[in-house]
Structure formats: structure tokens, C-alpha cells
Design a protein around this nucleic acid. Sequence first.
DNA 1: AACTTATCGATAAAAAAATATTGAATAGCC
DNA 2: GGCTATTCAATATTTTTTTATCGATAAGTT
Lengths: 215, 215
Amino acid sequence: MRKSLGVSWQTLQRLPVYLNYLKSLPSEWERISASAIAAALHLNDVQVRKDLACVSSSGRPKVGYPVDTLRRELEDFLGYHDVDTAVIVGAGHLGRALLNYGGFEAYGLKILAAFDVESTLFGSEGGKIWPLAKLGELCAQLHPKIGIITTPADAAQGACDLLVSANVKAIWNFAPVHLRVDEGIVVTDENMAVHLAILSHHLRQSPVREHFNQC
Amino acid sequence: MRKSLGVSWQTLQRLPVYLNYLKSLPSEWERISASAIAAALHLNDVQVRKDLACVSSSGRPKVGYPVDTLRRELEDFLGYHDVDTAVIVGAGHLGRALLNYGGFEAYGLKILAAFDVESTLFGSEGGKIWPLAKLGELCAQLHPKIGIITTPADAAQGACDLLVSANVKAIWNFAPVHLRVDEGIVVTDENMAVHLAILSHHLRQSPVREHFNQC
DNA sequence: AACTTATCGATAAAAAAATATTGAATAGCC
DNA sequence: GGCTATTCAATATTTTTTTATCGATAAGTT
């Protein structure tokens, strides 16, 4: 199920983490070794090297990887240099927060508009909130590739279907439900309940001593 | 690194998904089989059964699991019935969205307050936003177990250290950085960049046909 | 120039996870 | 009451992922 051409799903999850780490490095750092990255991130050095091998071949013995090159290669691979466009369905607290966030452009994501059924919202947030009924029309103009779902759970599947029929190719789902979609549509669930479950479960598990990355 | 007593990390990730699915069932449904859950969620039935075996032994041949019992068992296991308390550091768009969301109580999470350095925010959102300088004092009173970080990347490690010194035992990190913490503190990264990477990468990978869960 | 050490990359081994197989239990049916 | 179909649970197999090992390469050192 979770398969991808070339890189494994777990590797794909770690790549942005490496990129973050590279960004956090002081700019006078010119080179970095896989072992150093592994040590900093509490990972296995061979794993880091294998992961990086998927996106780069600029590593040299005794030297490591040139930071700026590796960074660019990672960003390229992750698509941060090509801009994808998105629309949001559900302009509640979370939807509006994402709409206003602004930090996604650095990741190559531009959020064009948000839709909701609540008429008091229309036109607010810089005129970016629209009636849900306008979704089809606007999407036909704007051609967003990504649909972001921030509706309540019971409205999520409907929102999803609507987005798919508006030709969106990928769904980023913040609602705590499992969405059913046709083949050819990618769904990733930003399931906060999962993270809460992990935190909660581990708080109850004494002594707690693990460090998790995403999930 | 990602180890837990009893359940594997992957299983722990799927449990909330099962719970969501059970909740979505019509209330007249009294029983459900692992095979049915697996089919609905596009998973392997043996996997579902093994996962459920960690939290329940109420499954019976030919019958399946009683929905309400299984639901309660999952909620118990995931700690939704015990309330954990949390504070937020960073009252920007995302921080305020989480503070106002209100839906976390269903997962056993109560958000008590948010902290920021921006003085124009103090006292807003129902008096729940406080100056960062007050964090130590308030935490000493409220004893939150969870710290939620929604600061910009460059402030995240500082926020983290502050929370840890205020005796928080778990960190839910929304900032796109890898946090360093002492042993004994749990960190989960709600790394949106990871999800964006997945979406973006797969949009570029034609034809796209996978369905991902969290990550 | 040879030696040492840090590092990459490839291959091999180990561990973990997912999937398949089989057997047992039970409800419904003949 | 015995037969059949469904489903759980235990075991076995396969696949995937992680970790370890080894040889090669290049920078710094003597």
C-alpha cells in the first residue's frame, strides 16, 4: 500500500527532517558528514547515507556532503522549488490559520482560497473565503492541484468528493476520518489524534524515554 | 529508537484510525469483524486482528467484535478517558487555532493557556494568552504535562527548553525543527513539511495512485 | 611518499513488519 | 444433530526496513 517509486515511505519522511537540520546549520558550515547528521538527529549513520543516496551523489569520502548542494538537491527532490496550488475546504479556526499562515510558500505551496458554508465568513481574510457553492466554478478557473480539508469529521467525505470532482489530484486531510477516494488521488492524513494518542499513551507508560519523529 | 512496551509504533498509529472508523459506523451496528474493518480501511485483515488483539480480547469467531466494547477498549488504551493538560507556546495563527479548537477534549486533552512574547495578544482569547515570562509561574500552578510548540522555527528550541524546565513531560512540536531534549521527555513532531513533501512528491510522480495514512 | 583516519558506498546480516496459512470455535442452516 | 460458512487466533512465511560489516577513496600527517 505505502509504496513509492525509488524511495521508501519512511525515507521520504526523513528527507524533510534532514533538510530542516541542514537549514539550522550555521552558514559558515560548508560540509557535513552523514555521521554528523545521524548523531545530531539520533539516527543510524548508514540509514542517513542510504536516504541521502536517493537524492544526492555529492558525498565524498573524508569530506562528507557540501551543505548547500545537498540542501538544493533535497529541496529539488521534495518539490519545494515548483509551486503547487491549493484550496481549503472548511474555514474554521484551523482552516483560517492555515490560510493566514504564509509559511507554506517556502515549501512550494500556495493557498489560493478557502471555502465554507458559513456566510458570515465570506469575503473575510483578504477576500479569500468563498461560499462552498462556488468551489466548482473557482477551481475551474484556478486549477488547484491540492485540496486541504479542515471541516468537521462529518463533512469531510463530502468535501473530499467535491474536491475530487473539481479535479484536485491530492488531498491533505485534517479531519479525523478515513477518506475514500478513487485510484489516482493521493490522500495524506494529518491526523492529530494519532499524535495525541502517542503522547498520551507514553505519558501513561513510565518511565517515558523515547523520542518520536512524526508519524 | 521508536520502541514502546507492548504495541509497536505502527500499531499505535493505526489504533486511532480504527477508533475513528468505529465512530463513523451507524449506531445500529452492534458487531463488526476485523475483515470488515480491514476492507473499509484498505488494510490487511490479519494486521487489523493483530492490532486489535493488543487492546481487546472481545473478538469471537463468526461474530467479530462488539462495536461499543471495542470502542471503549480503544479509548481506554489511547487514554481518551483520562484528561491530560497542556499549554501552548506561540500564540500565532496556529497556536490560537489550537487554543480555540475545543475538539481536543474528546481526546482527553485540555489546553489551559497559551504564551507569547507579543504583548498585544495578552489577555485575549478568553484571557488565555499570557506573556512568555509568566510561563514558569503559571506552570508551577497548573502542572501541565504536555507542552505544545507553535512558535517560528528559530524560537522552538528555546520554547522547548523552557517547557522542560517547567516540568512538562511531553512535547507536541509544530515547528519545523528537530528538538533536542533530555531522556525522559517525549517529543512528537507534527511536521507539516513531511506531509507536504509527500503530496508534492507524488504529484510529480505520474501516475499517482497511492493512499497514505499519516505518517 | 607512505601512513593514518574519516568518510562514502556497497553488500550482508539482523530485526521488524506485513501477509499468508492453518486450525479452532461458533452461529446459522439443513 | 451434523454440516457449512465465517471469523478469530496462532503460527509460518515473506517482505521491508534497519543496522552492521567491509572495502575503497581521499584529506591530513609524519
